[in-house]
Design a protein around this nucleic acid. Structure first.
Length: 454
RNA sequence: UCCGCAGUAGCUCAAUGGUAGAGCGGGUGGCUGUUAACCACUAGGUUGGGGGUUCAAGUCCCUCCUGCGGAGCCA
C-alpha cells in the first residue's frame, strides 16, 4: 500500500542512489506518483507475500510505504520466478519493474516485476501476522519496530519531538543540554541509578532543572530535552526507568505566565501532530475528535482546593493535603475534554525548590497538567523560589545534603530573579496522542523494571 | 516492597483429576488478482523449575522463577 505519510524525497536524490541500472531510477515508495508507467527499482523488505497459481504478490516495504509487486510466471524469466518463490517474510530485495495504476492494488499502484535482486533471504521471521503477547514483542523490539503500528508510533514521536524543538526555537529559547552524570541526588537518592565514577558515586540525572536554572540566568529563555532516569520500582502502564523529558526554564516568568506558556506549548504540539500525522493516527485507529479540543485555548484551570472539593462531590474520600491517586486523576480528567491544569498544591507534597504562594505560604506555585481520557499527568511545573533563606530551610526540611546544593544556591546569591519552568515526559504525551494503553510503545527501546533488553 | 492474575507447539490460545488440541507460522502440493488470500496433506510437546497429594496431575497443594495489571512514587 502506498502511504503518503512522509514527504517525498527529492527526485534528484533518488536518482543518484546506488543499486539501480543505468536506465531505471531507484526510488522510494514515497515518490511513487512521479513514476507511474515508468520502469523503477525499489529497495526494501518483503512485508508479506501471497501466491495464487502462477501469480505471486510481494508486498514490499521500504520504510516510506508499502507497495504490491506482481510476479506473473508466463511474463518473467524463469530465474525471476525462482527468486520470487524463494523470498520469505522480511527478506531484503531490490525489485525492478513497471509501476502501474491498478484499482485492485492496495493504495492504487503496483509494480509489474521484471527483475529481482535478492539481497538477503531471511529465515523464518519471529513476528508473524497474527497477535503476539507484550512480553514476546518486547523481547523482539528490534524486529517489532518493522510493523506498521510501530512505524506510526515512531513517526508521531518524531513529530512531537520536532515540534517541541521548533516551538522553543521560534520563540528565542536557547537549547541547553544538561548533564546525565550528576554528583548528588536532586530530590532524594531512592529513585536514582548509581554508577561508579572513577571511585566516586555518580547518579544518572532524574531532571535537568537544577542545571537549567543557572543557564536561564545566563540566557534568559532556555530548555533542555534529553533522557531522564528514575530507579522507581514502578510497574504500571505509565512508567519507564528511562524516558525523555523536555524542560523549559524562563527568567522573569511568573506563575500565571507559566500556565499560559504550557498551554500554548501543548496546544501547538497537538495541532501540529493532527496536521502532519493524520495517516499515522488513522493507522493507530485514534479518534482524533478526542484530540481536537486540546488544540484550543484556554485549558480549564482548577485550584487544588477546588479539585479536592470536586473529587469529594464525585465520591472520592481524598482529603485536603493528600496528593492525587491514579483513580482521582482519572475521575477528575473525565470531567473535561481538554488537559486540566491543577494549580497551587500544598507545599508539603511538592519539591523543595518551589515558590510559596504569597497569598497562602502553605501552598506552592505549582501546576500539574493532566491529559484527558484518563492519561493523567504529563506536565509538572512551578515558579521557582528566589529566596536563599527559603531554599536553605527547605533543603534542611527535606533532609537533603546541603553541600551538594551550594552551587545551585549561588543562583539566589548572585542576582536572584523570578523564574519558572516545567517538565513534560514525551512518552506520556505520545501515548496520549496515539491513544494507546501503555507507554512502552511510545519509545523505540523501552527501559522498565526487569527489562533492559534489547 | 505489597496485592491480584498468568505461564501448555516458534506465536496466540483450548483441554470435568483419566489417551495434550486448534488457528497462525514452517514444509509439500493445488489455484491468473490476492488484500493477515484460500484448499489439501504434513512435521512440530520433558505443559516455566523443584517438591508433594493421588491408582492417576497441564489440572490440586507448597515453593522458587518469569511476565502482566495495580498500589506507593512520579513525567
Amino acid at each position: 500500500m502506498h502511504c503518503g505519510t512522509r514527504n517525498a524525497t527529492p527526485r534528484v536524490q533518488s536518482r543518484i542512489r546506488q543499486g539501480g541500472t543505468m536506465s531505471t531510477p531507484v526510488i522510494t515508495i514515497a515518490d511513487l506518483t512521479s513514476f507511474v508507467d515508468q520502469e523503477v527499482t525499489i529497495q526494501g523488505w518483503v512485508y508479506n507475500w501471497r501466491k495464487k497459481g502462477k501469480l505471486r504478490f510481494i508486498i514490499l516495504r521500504d520504510g516510506f510505504g508499502y507497495l504490491q509487486c506482481i510476479v506473473f510466471r508466463p511474463e518473467v524469466e524463469d530465474s525471476v520466478w525462482e527468486t520470487a518463490v524463494e523470498l520469505t517474510q522480511e527478506s531484503s530485495v531490490r525489485i525492478t519493474g513497471r509501476l502501474v495504476a491498478d484499482d485492485r492494488a492496495p493504495g492504487g499502484y503496483e509494480l509489474k516485476v521484471s527483475a529481482l535482486d535478492p539481497v538477503h533471504i531471511s529465515p523464518e521471521f519471529p513476528i508473524g501476522k497474527k497477535n503476539h503477547g507484550p512480553d514476546f514483542l518486547l523481547n523482539h523490539r528490534h524486529l517489532w519496530l518493522r510493523s506498521k503500528r510501530q512505524h506510526a508510533m515512531m513517526r508521531v514521536r518524531s513529530e512531537v519531538s520536532q515540534s517541541i524543538r521548533d516551538f522553543f526555537y521560534t520563540r528565542g529559547y536557547t537549547n541547553i543540554d544538561s548533564p546525565i552524570l550528576t554528583p548528588a541526588a536532586c530530590e532524594g537518592t531512592s529513585t536514582l541509578f548509581e554508577t561508579d565514577y572513577f571511585g566516586e558515586p555518580a547518579f544518572l540525572s532524574q531532571s535537568g532543572q537544577l542545571y537549567l536554572e543557572p543557564a536561564c540566568a545566563a540566557l534568559g529563555k532556555v530548555y533542555c530535552f534529553g533522557p531522564t532516569f528514575r530507579a522507581e520500582k514502578s510497574k504500571t502502564r505509565r512508567h519507564l526507568t528511562e524516558f525523555w523529558m523536555v524542560e523549559p526554564e524562563v527568567a522573569w516568568l511568573r506563575f500565571d505566565g507559566l500556565l499560559d506558556l504550557a498551554e500554548e506549548f501543548l496546544s501547538e504540539i497537538i495541532s501540529r501532530v493532527l496536521d502532519r500525522c493524520s495517516e499515522d493516527l488513522k493507522r493507530l485507529e485514534r479518534d482524533v475528535s478526542k484530540l481536537e479540543p486540546s488544540t484550543r485555548r484556554p485549558y480549564p484551570r482548577l485550584d487544588y482546593g477546588d479539585a479536592i472539593l470536586k473529587l469529594n462531590e464525585l465520591g472520592s474520600d481524598i482529603e485536603h493535603g493528600d496528593d492525587f491517586g491514579g483513580d482521582d486523576e482519572t475521575v477528575l480528567t473525565q470531567q473535561y475534554d481538554q488537559p486540566l491544569m491543577v494549580t497551587r498544591y500544598p507545599a508539603a507534597i511538592k519539591a523543595f525548590y518551589m515558590q510559596p504562594d504569597p497569598a497562602d505560604p502553605t501552598r506552592a506555585l505549582a501546576v500539574d497538567i493532566l491529559a484527558p481520557e484518563g492519561y493523567g499527568e504529563i506536565i509538572g511545573g512551578s515558579e521557582r523560589s528566589d529566596s536563599l533563606e527559603h531554599l536553605e530551610r527547605q533543603i534542611a526540611a527535606h533532609e537533603l545534603p546541603r553541600e551538594a546544593f551550594e552551587w545551585y544556591l549561588d543562583i539566589r546569591r548572585y542576582g536572584s530573579f523570578p523564574h519558572s519552568g516545567y517538565g513534560m515526559g514525551i512518552e506520556r504525551c505520545v501515548t496520549w496522542i496515539c491513544g494507546v494503553p501503555h507507554l512502552r510503545e511510545a519509545i523505540p527501546y523501552p527501559r522498565m523494571i526487569n527489562r533492559l533488553y534489547p
